[in-house]
């Protein structure tokens, strides 16, 4: 059975500390580009990555993580960090339901598929800390990079930005004591953990659907398959799994001598016009 996979991305170590400690993650020293922490908790594989300040660094780090296969398309990628807000109280957590980039005017609408009752808010990604809070909503400096990258590489339904309010019109960011950051994140961990569990399950389901049949790799070693043929083989074996869940195709197809024969034999077995079975 596959494992759910969650990657938490933050700008600063102060925002990530809570998760590293609570989930018991260990630093992975192989990667020098970005501080990387890895571990498991309750059947979910966790990675925490720290990008540094700004949307560009965030986008760059996510692309890098995909390149290094630290994350894959089925990974739930979560951006957590502090943000200013026009009207929410200090320490309040919210989920971004719209992200607007002040650099490019691009807008993203993260699909809301989670069963949660978190406060939602627009999030404006800006290049310097906000002091006026003119537009109603949150203000951060990484979310545009986050949404830009995950909309290209990830499954947006599994990727979300959760922000904890660190400043607002009553509490200037200039007065923020750095030691308060882990504390306000920590206060919201009991809200976040059930969401991690839900996202972990969704991630595992996605991985299950994309996981190849056990015979796939064995057959690939028996003959040379072009890329197109590999794709065809993958689809045929998934159909096989639906039709004959308890039967091993390797036992039923004899010894085809080349890729073409493998595909032909599989197709012949599967195209036999048997009706779909639905339980009454």
């Amino acid at each position: 059975m596959n494992q759910g996979d969650i990657c938490i991305v933050t700008a600063f170590m102060l925002e990530a500390e809570t998760f590293i400690h609570n989930l018991g993650l260990k630093q992975e020293t192989v990667f020098r580009e970005y501080p990387t922490f890895i571990g498991e908790d309750e059947g979910i594989h966790y990675t925490v990555l720290i990008s540094g300040l700004g949307a560009f660094r965030m986008a760059q780090m996510i692309a890098w993580a995909f390149g290094k296969t630290l994350v894959r398309p089925s990974t739930s990628i979560i951006n957590i960090g502090i943000a200013g807000h026009s009207n929410l109280e200090f320490g309040q957590i919210f989920k971004a339901n719209k992200c607007v980039s002040s650099f490019s005017n691009e807008t993203w609408f993260p699909p809301m598929v989670l069963k949660d009752s978190l406060i939602q808010s627009s999030l404006y990604c800006v290049s310097k800390p906000e002091t006026d809070y003119k537009l109603a909503g949150g203000y951060d400096m990484e979310s545009a990079g986050f949404f830009s990258a995950i909309s290209k590489f990830g499954i947006p339904e599994l990727c979300h930005a959760f922000k904890v309010v660190s400043d607002n019109p009553q509490n200037s960011w200039r007065d923020l004591n750095k030691s308060e950051i882990p504390m306000i994140v920590e206060k919201n961990i009991s809200i976040l953990m059930p969401l991690f569990k839900e996202l972990g399950n969704l991630s595992r389901n996605e991985l299950d659907l994309s996981t190849e049949h056990p015979a796939y790799d064995i057959i690939l070693k028996k003959a040379h398959f072009s890329k197109t043929q590999q794709f065809q083989l993958s689809k045929l074996l998934k159909r096989w799994d639906t039709y004959f869940p308890h039967s091993d195709p390797l036992d039923k197809l004899g010894n085809p001598v080349n890729s073409k024969q493998w595909l032909q034999k599989l197709t012949a077995k599967l195209d036999f016009p048997m009706p779909s079975k639905f339980s009454p």
Partner: peptide
Amino acid sequence: GEVFNRSNQNFRLQKKK
């Protein structure tokens, strides 16, 4: 269309909610 026609959406996951 900003929400509905955006590329890289998962119909199956969105069907959950």
